[in-house]
Design a protein around this nucleic acid. Structure first.
Length: 177
DNA sequence: GCTATGATCATA
DNA sequence: ATGATCATAGCA
């Protein structure tokens, strides 16, 4: 039941991965939740992405093999979880913006900084393989159909008008309507 | 070495 | 609308 999504799932265009991640389950230890909101960050032609200026110590993992976690600290206090997409050598990652609690969740999960807190994910998990653990992403055996909404990304100043945010329409746990 | 800035959130 | 708080990046 909790078989991880294969690496081939992530080795695709970032936008496809971002959209298909909706409805998937992310788990860490006892905690788990259903992904209801994501954002795509492209490697090229995307000034908002951390990879816009190439490989650095921080962005190295995003250029690495797909299916790995990219976790970083923002505003000196919040950790954000991303999943690396695209084949190795190509930059692209998906920010997990909100999850719907499934089990073992304490606290709110309707925001990038909040869900990492609730799942117990920190920068120590940067670079870990999401097809192996300790953080795992898997598909649900049975999926209820849902509508996908698209909008501009939230909280960025560059390339702010691109429609790269995806969310489960009507879900109460998305960070915004 | 120094400084500006940021993929956020809670509070007011 | 603002403040908290610090790692990263760009530059001197």
């Amino acid at each position: 039941m909790r078989r991880p999504l294969p690496r081939s799932f992530y080795a695709r265009p970032t936008v496809e991965v971002a959209r298909d991640l909706l409805g998937k389950i992310i788990l860490h230890g006892e905690a788990s939740g259903r992904i209801v909101e994501t954002e795509a960050y492209l490697g090229i032609d995307d000034a908002a992405a951390h990879t816009a200026r190439g490989i650095t110590d921080r962005t190295r993992v995003i250029f690495g093999p797909p299916g790995h976690a990219y976790v970083y600290l923002i505003y000196g206090m919040h950790e954000c979880l991303n999943l690396v997409a695209e084949p190795e050598g190509v930059a692209g990652c998906v920010l997990i913006r909100a999850i719907e609690p499934v089990s073992g969740i304490a606290g709110a999960t309707n925001g990038p900084g909040k869900l990492t807190q609730a799942l117990g994910i920190t920068r120590r998990h940067n670079g870990c393989d999401v097809t192996r653990g300790p953080i795992v992403v898997s598909a649900l055996p049975k999926v209820e159909p849902f509508e996908i909404g698209v909008s501009k990304r939230i909280g960025i100043t560059k390339s702010a008008d691109l429609p790269l945010r995806f969310y489960v329409k009507g879900n109460p746990f998305v960070s915004r309507k």
